[in-house]
Structure formats: structure tokens, C-alpha cells
Design a binder for these strands. Structure first.
Lengths: 221, 221
DNA sequence: GGTTGTGAACCACTTCACAGCC
DNA sequence: GGCTGTGAAGTGGTTCACAACC
């Protein structure tokens, strides 16, 4: 029991799954979707590896955390693995997602094929700017931020935060209060949340900022 | 010699600096900028830690890779550390950056304060859509993608790629040919480049996709 | 007393090598 | 023969504990 073996849905989870493995699963899923569209039925770890820049044993180990999905000497069945990955990642049914902040950056996500392909749908949007409130984008009406509290009733448990840095912590606090349990934060600020809540932050400027470090010194000039 | 000790600019680099440390340096820099605006002169590792969600020894170890910037019993001098970090990260002079893909996502970056605060400036933009070519955003004229090759002459060595997934590899190949050595890739695709070139990829849908994995199963209903 | 800087211990993840299976 | 699954070895990064210093 304390070893962590357990049946979860249709797959087994042995011990603890490394976070890094979880990061790669969506990558595998997307690759499978693309080769499924090409009509492929079977795939081996070395193909994942070549296409995604990962080592073959890494792919096999990642998948084996959830049970043996492959066939020795053959590879993995594309349809079956797709099904399993969507199951593991809880992407089987559409994940209703709220968007907070309908500015330049936030608006990108109203109609973002990367999201819909993986089963996410923006079903609500909020902003505090009166000019934006009431406008409709891709079928979603921008609401006043005070309406956040309706999210629980509407069954929305995920949110994307695209507000200015100064408003991020407050926004997240309100989302948590509204029953949101998973947050994708695009604001450049550290967010503190209760243990039960999961925050994934993307900080574009921060990633850009470490690029020069690796570069050779500018030549001549 | 083989131990890697070397004088680099004004700071020393002992052995190899972990990639994870380099990722945190811009975080430290941004925090320093914010407390410098508040007029603070001194800061200790535990303050970084509290504000950024990092352990104090981690902060000290990160900084110590580049030499002793602090004073035992006192902390770090804000101005001096700011200077050192900007130096280490090669952010002393403005980094001229090209933007490829002037669609919804790319356009966000024409006037992105997160970039300018850290010393980046978008000085050129490219797209293949004839309708966008010739338009001016924030003082930058969108050029045809065939003009990429002028970047070397213009002294641009960094680029942000915000094109559709299918066009990403080709775009990057052309950028490399044009002398760009550091790339921030926002397209959801694996990019292969020569060893000398540095690519940092941000894949927003991929990050969103692992959020449901961590969530408790939906209650009731 | 307070805080830095750092070797050493610890931990997590990756890679390897090969047994097992088709 | 070919490819998966996995214990074991290797690697990289974090945390600890404390000596050194102000």
C-alpha cells in the first residue's frame, strides 16, 4: 500500500511518476495525433525519439510508469496508446477553461487550435476594463471580473491568467475562491497558492532573457 | 585549465554553471530591479527566497557560481548585484531582436514591457502574408520573409519565432542562415539546429495539457 | 548576532545494458 | 532479429550544515 501501487482508471501508477515525465506525456500525445492522421497504426520508441529530440529509453521508461503499453519486438499500437495517454492526462472529455484578462495576450487564446486539439475549450472570459466587458470573441462574452465567482456553478476548474503582473496574485486568489484548481499563469510574477492548487507559469520575457547568456560574444564591431 | 576556471568579463565562472541556475538568474535580476525602484540598497538571500519561491541556500549557491557578490552578516548590495547580473546575462546593451510571424501571438511582442525592461528591442518583423507586409507596428515595419537575410548586416542575432507549427523548422533554418544564433520559439514543434545555435521553446498548449493530470477527479455530478 | 559561501550528503532524473518477449 | 520494459549505474541539481566573515 505504502509503495503507491494503485489502479487509477484503466492504468496503473507505480511509485511516483517524475514531474519531468508528466511534462513529456503531452508531447507524446501530440505526436501520436499527428501520425494517427497519417494513418499510422504502429510506432516505436525510436520514432518518438527522433521526432521529439528525446532518447528512446526515456520514452519507454516514461510510458512504462503507467504500465506496459507496448509489444516487445513490435512497438506501440497508435490508437491504443493515444487512448491511454488521453486517459492518463485526463483529456478524455473537454476541459472547460476560463480566461482572465482579455488584452492582447489573452485574446490570442480565444481561438487557439493548440488548445482545442488537446481538448480544451475557453468557455468564459473576464476582464476589468469596462470597454472590453460585453464584447464577444469567438462566441464567448467578456464578463466583469466580479463574475468570477460563478465559475464553480458553471463547472469550470481550470483558468488561464493573462493579466498584468501587479494583478496576478489577486486574480489567482479570486480564482481559487471560485473553485478553480488548476491555473496557467502567463503573468510575470510568482504566485503563491494553497497546496491543493496547481499553478503552471509561463514567463516569456524570462526565457528570452537567458538567451544572450549562451551566445558567443558579438564578433568584431 | 580543464577544470573550467576562467575570467569572463568581470566575473569568474567556476566549473560548469547548471542550466537551472541560468534559468533563475533573470528572476533574480527582475526582483532586484523592482526593489531598486523602491529605493532598497541591500538585500539578503532569504528575501529573494520569500519573494520568488526558492530556498535561500539555492539563491546563495546560484550567485556564488559567479563569485562572491555578497557580504557575510550583511547581504548583497542591490546596485552592485544588478550590475553583475546584467553583465553575466549579457543584458548590458540593448539586444536587438527580430520577430518572425506578425499574427495574433507575434503582435503581442511589438510593445511588450517585459522585454524592454530587460533590455530587448524588436527592431525588425517579418511575415509571409502580403496583407501584413508593409504595415507598421510600434515603429517597426513588417517585411517580407525573404528579407530575413538582411539581419546579419543589421546586427540582429536574436529572433522570436511566432509562426504556425508547420512553418517553424523552415523559418528557423532561414534564421540560422541569416546569422541568428539565439531563438525563442513559440511554435508547437520540435526544432533541430546546429550545435552552436541556442533554441528555447515555449509551448503554451503543452503546459496547459498537463494541468488536468494533477487535478482531483471532478466531484459528484 | 547575522548572513554569506561551500563541501558533502541527498535526491531526482536520465541513460545504459540487457533480460524477456514477440 | 527486433523492440519493449526495467534494475542498476551514472549524472545533475538541491538541500544541508557549518565554517568564515562582518
Amino acid at each position: 500500500m505504502h509503495k503507491g501501487n494503485a489502479i487509477k482508471g484503466e492504468y496503473m501508477r507505480y511509485h511516483k511518476v517524475p514531474d519531468e515525465t508528466v511534462k513529456r506525456l503531452p508531447l507524446y500525445l501530440r505526436y501520436l495525433q499527428s501520425i494517427a492522421r497519417d494513418g499510422r497504426n504502429n510506432v516505436k520508441s525510436s520514432e518518438f525519439a527522433d521526432s521529439l529530440g528525446i532518447n528512446p529509453p526515456q520514452v519507454r521508461k516514461d510510458l512504462s510508469f503507467f504500465g506496459g503499453f507496448g509489444t516487445p519486438g513490435v512497438g506501440y499500437n497508435v490508437k491504443k496508446l493515444l487512448h491511454q495517454l488521453r486517459n492518463i492526462l485526463k483529456l478524455k472529455k473537454t476541459n472547460k477553461t476560463a480566461l482572465v484578462g482579455a488584452g492582447d495576450l489573452g485574446s490570442v487564446f480565444f481561438d487557439y487550435s493548440g488548445f482545442s486539439q488537446l481538448g480544451f475549450e475557453i468557455v468564459a472570459a473576464f476582464d476589468k476594463d469596462p470597454i472590453k466587458i460585453g464584447t464577444v470573441k469567438n462566441g464567448v462574452t467578456v464578463e466583469d471580473i466580479s463574475k468570477l465567482k460563478t465559475l464553480k456553478r458553471r463547472g469550470v476548474r481550470l483558468a488561464i491568467v493573462a493579466v498584468p503582473a501587479g494583478a496576478a496574485q489577486e486574480t489567482v486568489d479570486r480564482l481559487v475562491e471560485a473553485g478553480v484548481v488548476g491555473i496557467l499563469n502567463l503573468a510575470p510574477s510568482y504566485i503563491s497558492v494553497p497546496k491543493k492548487i496547481r499553478v503552471i507559469s509561463i514567463d516569456i520575457a524570462l526565457d528570452l532573457a537567458r538567451l544572450p547568456y549562451y551566445l558567443p560574444l558579438a564578433s568584431g564591431k
